[in-house]
Amino acid sequence: MKVMIRKTATGHSAYVAKKDLEELIVEMENPALWGGKVTLANGWQLELPAMAADTPLPITVEARKL
């Protein structure tokens, strides 16, 4: 699914347009965010693609819901 990742004042957030859902990312498998699992505030887990740590945000990526 397409997910937009952006930086907020409190960390990172994910927006899933198909579900009209925006949630804070509360847990990251990798400190650089990319190439691992993230957990959203509502409990969803997404697998993000591997990208460079300095990838500019906001960005829309293809993520997989676990």
Rank of each mutant, 00 (worst) to 15 (best):
R6N: 10
V26H: 04
A63L: 08
M28R: 10
L66P: 06
A32D: 15
G36V: 06
P31V: 09
V26N: 03
A53L: 10
E62Q: 12
E62H: 12
A50I: 12
P56E: 12
K7I: 08
I59Q: 10
S13K: 09
A41T: 06
P31E: 13
G35C: 04
L46I: 11
E29Q: 09
T10Q: 13
K37R: 13
A14P: 01
P56M: 11
P49T: 03
T10C: 14
S13D: 05
K7N: 06
A32Y: 14
A50D: 12
R6S: 14
T8I: 09
E29N: 05
G36Q: 04
A14D: 01
D20P: 04
K7G: 06
D20V: 07
G35P: 05
K2Q: 14
L66N: 05
T55S: 06
T8W: 06
A50P: 14
I25H: 00
L33Y: 03
I5V: 08
G43Y: 04
M4I: 14
E47P: 00
L57N: 03
A17I: 15
K19H: 15
K2N: 10
S13N: 06
A52N: 09
V26M: 07
T39F: 07
D54R: 04
P31S: 09
T55W: 04
L46R: 00
A63Y: 05
A9T: 11
E62G: 08
L33A: 02
P56I: 11
T10G: 12
T60L: 11
T55H: 04
K18M: 14
K37C: 10
D20M: 10
A50V: 12
L57H: 02
A53C: 07
G36P: 01
E23L: 15
L46M: 08
A14I: 15
A52Q: 08
T60D: 06
Q45Y: 08
A63N: 01
A41Q: 08
M4G: 04
N30I: 05
W44C: 14
M4S: 10
T39P: 01
L24F: 09
T39D: 01
G35E: 05
A52K: 10
K19M: 15
D20S: 10
L66H: 07
Y15N: 06
R6C: 12
Y15H: 09
A63M: 06
K7D: 04
Q45N: 07
H12R: 07
M4F: 07
E22K: 05
E29F: 05
A14L: 14
M51N: 04
Q45G: 03
L57A: 02
